[in-house]
Design a protein around this nucleic acid. Structure first.
Lengths: 208, 208
DNA sequence: CACACAACCGGACCACGGTCCGTTTAGTAC
DNA sequence: GTACTAAACGGACCGTGGTCCGGTTGTGTG
């Protein structure tokens, strides 16, 4: 379902699955997601093996990996609802996150919202953003495009592509967990740091 | 030659090994390092397993892991010479990398030097900086402290701790490999992006 | 030189993520 | 209902990083 006609859009490609035909396939998919969610919530994503997920779902290991391809992809699927919601907010939502506010404010709001997401799902996100696959995930591409456009709008002279990547790197789940747990920073401190960073990277912001 | 009088002076703890007593231990350590270096250079670090390293070194797997603890630590040890040299350069070397230049220029030079290091040893660095251990390695601590001091010197009002972490995240091996191979950026483009980033993060730079 | 003990050695072993392939089954056409 | 096929199933299997522990060996002491 399209949300709004007329908007150009990057119709969030997000994570479309191949159209599943057979009934047992969809059923098993649902079982796996349910089992994974339960186990991850109960014991922490890092302490749950794929074998356990398969067994809890009453499904063979082969089935699990055929449906999701990898542990990271399973975690990504688990987060798809939250991620969709996040994307909806900064693409078509209310200001300052959505359109209407000035680019700088939107970037600040973007980071704060992402930090909230991290705060709530840090473990699952960490499982999803492991390895180089992190940079080729659909959510990453959407976030990158979003930041790039905002940066270009805020300051046409800046190297928007590069700066977008740098900013996103600082919002990665690995950095987040390290700063929270390793350095003992609070969520508020991170948000404050992010706001300051945005203010400094996009100077002045003399934008209509 | 300390960088500046009165500064506490972080005598680069770098990577000190436990004082090795027995002869066979040091001999095996050397064998392992030599074998690893050879194999990594020949086939790429990512395509060499620890079993192979052990066999090539003529040593049991247990010995390999007792000496180095993990694959990441082995990679780190392999890089220790280059890393020492790098640290020497920005702590006691010539300007603009070493003391004498203004903080902004030193930060620019720091990133460029780190990018050169990445360009030359990307694969081994990627093996060393895997997982959360990346943030607890001695080199990371030194780099962080260095950037924090420079930032504080350049602008006492900024959140130096946080910004240092963000800047370092953008110089991680994962981000580097992604930007080079995934996005096709050249080394020069990365250096240029870094310089611009530094200029923007530390505004004006009205420093004595 | 003999002794004793701590340190070291090596390879069997483990858990994990991921793959393979022979078997089963849902859907369809008659 | 029967027959057929493509798709899905599941668990044995693999390579990997990392651990364990019984046996060995270098080294300080008498």
């Amino acid at each position: 379902m399209d949300t709004q006609p007329g908007l150009p859009m990057f119709d969030l490609p997000l994570l479309e699955e191949t159209p599943i035909a057979r009934a047992d396939a969809t059923r098993n998919r649902a079982r796996i997601l349910a089992a994974a969610e339960r186990l991850f919530a109960a014991r922490g994503a890092a302490c749950v093996s794929m074998d356990e997920v398969a067994e809890a779902a009453g499904v063979g290991k082969g089935t699990l990996f055929r449906r999701f391809g990898s542990r990271a992809a399973l975690a990504l699927a688990l987060l798809s609802e939250h991620e969709s919601c996040f994307q909806e907010s900064f693409i078509r939502g209310e200001p300052p996150l959505g359109p209407g506010a000035c680019p700088t404010d939107r970037m600040s709001a973007f980071g704060e919202a992402r930090l909230d997401l991290l705060d709530e799902h840090a473990e699952v996100l960490a499982a999803a953003e492991v390895g180089p696959a992190r940079f080729s995930s659909p959510p990453y591409a959407v976030h990158r495009l979003h930041l790039t456009l905002l940066l270009r709008e805020a300051d046409p002279d800046c190297d928007a592509e590069y700066i977008a990547e740098v900013l996103l790197a600082s919002l990665g789940s690995d950095v987040f967990m390290y700063l929270r747990e390793g350095r003992g920073l609070s969520l508020e401190q991170l948000k404050s740091g992010w706001r300051q960073l945005v203010q400094r990277v996009v100077p002045a912001a003399a934008v209509s």
